[in-house]
């Protein structure tokens, strides 16, 4: 555990809580891509199956349970409790175009050809592109609420901090996970355009187009 890893995890947690609270407080999920949230629930489910097979630390176990729980709570709020406010007409990204290729890639490029390891690899690849339906939705409607942009910013910061974490671990621990690093770089790059808009527009006018 290093400072980049810890702040990355906390930034990730902040993003998840911000989204959940926004939907709960406004009693609306307008502008939120339910498809991205389904993908994140799928990411956490397939990655954290090791909760059932191995214990790493209390921190690790608690965070995994919180992430999974919040992901399903968010999906529930969007598709059940506040379904009437869900903007399905603008959430038109075809997620099978992500899930199917990512599933194929996980079978072909992995550390070990075992069920848990393939599912872990699938979750890493899928996470790197899971935000695309949300970004697609924003590009389609041409706007996002400020709080939604804070959510996206925290998510992007989390992945960027993980990159620094991997650099740290490479130098000080000799740790090197090519699958996580390549997927992490791809994921961070996807946020770059958004980062630029966030810094130049959101802070200036509190709403961006």
């Amino acid at each position: 555990m290093n400072v980049f890893r810890l702040t990355g995890d906390l930034s990730h947690l902040a993003a998840i809580i911000i989204l959940l609270l926004k939907i709960w407080k406004t009693r609306s999920c307008a502008g939120i891509s339910g498809k991205s949230q389904i993908l994140f629930a799928l990411v956490f489910t397939t990655r954290y199956l090791d909760l059932l097979t191995s214990f790493i630390s209390l921190y690790n176990t608690c965070m995994k349970i919180i992430y999974v729980g919040c992901a399903y709570a968010t999906v529930y709020l969007i598709y059940a409790k506040f379904r009437a406010t869900y903007d399905g007409n603008h959430d038109t990204f075809r997620i099978e175009f992500l899930v199917v290729p990512v599933g194929g890639l996980a079978f072909l490029v992995n550390h070990d050809f075992s069920p848990l390891e393939i599912l872990w690899t699938f979750s890493i690849y899928l996470e790197s592109v899971a935000i695309l339906p949300q970004l697609f939705m924003i590009s389609k409607t041409g706007e996002a609420e400020t709080i939604t942009t804070h959510y996206l910013f925290c998510l992007g910061v989390y992945r960027a901090l993980y990159l620094f974490n991997w650099i740290w671990r490479f130098y000080f621990e000799g740790f090197f996970d090519m699958i996580a690093i390549v997927a992490g770089v791809v994921q961070t790059i996807l946020y770059c355009d958004f980062f630029y808009l966030y810094v130049t527009k959101v802070n200036a006018v509190q709403r961006f187009q």
Binding site: R47, D50, H111, W120, D177
Partner: peptide
């Protein structure tokens, strides 16, 4: 390299 099924990161 990484140890399989020892993914400590979240």
């Amino acid at each position: 390299g990484t140890l399989v099924e020892d993914h400590d990161e979240l």
